[in-house]
Amino acid sequence: MNVDEQENPLLKAWKVQLSRGLLEFLVLVLLENKRHGYDILQTIRSLFPRSEPPLSDGTIYNILTRLKSKDLVSMETVLFEGRMRRYYCLTKKGKQLQQEMIDEWTNLNSSVIKALEMYSLI
């Protein structure tokens, strides 16, 4: 068994953790404008085209439900072409959390880039 095959499951798990860990942050960012569930789902899929395992619809809807239950997101139902369409937008509490997450992400990102630059890895 070569090193790549040994490391592959670890890399896979790390990638899953990284992408899934960022999902809530991304949803909050995308909700800067009012959006409906399917729209958010499509946008995230376009941002992570090679997501492994593939992103199921349930994951995003579950994140929206969790944010809703914590009063971070509000929802309004609109009848669109004979079907119910739910639009989501940030609440004041959600907006606050979004800003805190952006600040955290900016700091983290600059620290990672700094570390990589230190050893000329990028």
């Binding site: 619809d57 809807y61 369409r85």
Partner: peptide, 16 residues
């Protein structure tokens, strides 16, 4: 289960 139930309600009604 609570989260899944909430998500399913929204999803099923939206996706028909």
């Amino acid at each position: 289960l609570d989260e899944a139930a909430g998500s399913l309600t929204d999803y099923i009604s939206e996706m028909d």
